[in-house]
Design a protein around this nucleic acid. Structure first.
Lengths: 254, 254
DNA sequence: TGCTAAGTTAGGTCAGACCATTAGGTGGCA
DNA sequence: TGCCACCTAATGGTCTGACCTAACTTAGCA
């Protein structure tokens, strides 16, 4: 083929060829995110998608797997099973933040910094937006903390209370972030054991005063008290374990 | 088989049978998160994993797909391709936050609330931790804003500056969150068009003053100015478009 | 009526083949 | 010698078709 003949002006830029499974996943994702399908809507069975898309079942399954990991569908086996639309919740954000924290071996300091940034705002919004159910949840968590007998019980109730505050803000983004941060601090603190009787008493007192401010819709007090509480907690935790990366105990047996 | 004979005391509780692909994905995930493999370490080829695990290639591939979506590996095709370990970055958090925001049709108000919670803290930390490279990036974004000629250019440079502040905090969690929030606000604002010459001038001035505080390591001023700036921006944006959900233009053609 | 067994429909796994992409080697030509 | 075109091999991507497993439905029997 002679290369010096005059070329017509057809010029193409380098093109990216997407994978078939990604194409299908993207199509379904856009449809789900558009809100076109309400929560729980069943997607067609895999074999039906095969005939509709002219793709192989392998490809269809990979696409569904992608959406499942992204929290956009939930897959159930068995008859009358299948893929059901699911709008992503706080959990999926929490999961990916957890991967970031663990995978990057992020210093506990960063987690506490983020918490100090977020929790006072959660308290402010909670004071504005709390409903009766939110207050009940806060009280319940407080009582669980006071009644807790071992470290695990204390930490779990503690996490519950902080998540309840975020949840009372009725801001799903902040709630998702707080769930993730709480999980990270939980696993970190559990191995430290700086929690003693005094820490618990102080915690209960601080929580009660923040809860009171939220109940009385006193936003400024809620912010102030929450900021002080979180800051104190962070300092105490860092005192015990300065600049330590978050690691997870390796319990594999091989 | 007679059913009334004395049964020996072997009692089992209902068991959950995990999927094979999940088992493999979990195993690999734990190994990667443990930090055992440095970034870029190649995983064995799919067919090698098949012989090692005694699983089918389908199953192995599903496991790899899960890890890819979670941002823990990067998969390249072709000779000397394969799956390479990748520690999750800010992007994966941003992606999942984006899914939450879009999928739940979260009100723009919530995004702005979260931003008001986070950005002042970013500014504070940036004032403490900023390096020369961070300052250069901030200056560059500021200049791009001043020089921008159309709406898109302005918004992109604006996002760059805000992300640069977060990045200067050297806190990867906050950075990831800010990337996601910025993206959401970007797509929302792009269709609104409340940006005019006056808004741009005000923005440039506000950014300059925050940048100055960060350069001079004046944490208090950085927090104060950033808080004022973000609050003003949020109010202005909400004034134009009160209680609107974030939607994405539907550009499908079928 | 009430329980059991078979049937039906869905996802989960497997085996094997072939296609597509890309890095690296190899030989010919200037 | 040095460069370019071609070929090869390694690896992920896709397809086909089969079978297994889970769970609901229904028919049939006691």
């Amino acid at each position: 083929m002679p290369s010096d003949e005059v070329q017509p002006s057809i010029r193409l830029s380098p093109m990216q060829v997407p994978k078939a499974s990604d194409v299908l996943a993207t199509e379904l994702r856009e449809r789900i995110l558009s809100g076109e399908y309400p929560e729980g809507t069943p997607l067609p069975p895999e074999r039906e998608l095969v005939v509709q898309t002219h793709m192989s079942r392998t490809t269809v399954r990979e696409a569904l797997r992608i959406l499942e990991v992204q929290g956009l569908i939930r897959i159930k086996a068995g008859r009358s099973g299948g893929a059901f639309v699911q709008h992503p919740g706080e959990d999926s954000v929490a999961d990916s933040l957890e991967l970031l924290i663990r995978g990057r071996q992020i210093r506990l300091t960063s987690v506490h910094e983020t918490r100090e940034a977020i929790e006072p705002s959660c308290a402010r919004l909670a004071a504005h937006n709390r409903l009766p159910a939110d207050l009940r949840r806060l009280e319940a968590a407080n009582e669980a903390i006071a009644a807790s007998e071992n470290l695990d019980g204390f930490l779990e109730a503690n996490v519950d209370w902080h998540v309840a505050v975020a949840s009372a803000s009725h801001n799903e983004i902040l709630t998702g972030i707080m769930i993730a941060l709480s999980r990270a601090i939980y696993t970190a603190t559990r191995t430290e054991g700086f929690v003693n009787e005094e820490v618990r008493a102080i915690t209960v007192r601080a929580h009660r005063s923040v809860t009171r401010a939220i109940r009385e819709r006193d936003a400024d007090a809620a912010v102030r008290r929450m900021a002080r509480h979180v800051h104190a907690y962070a300092e105490a935790a860092l005192e015990v374990d300065d600049r330590t990366a978050i690691t997870v105990p390796d319990d594999r047996s091989d």
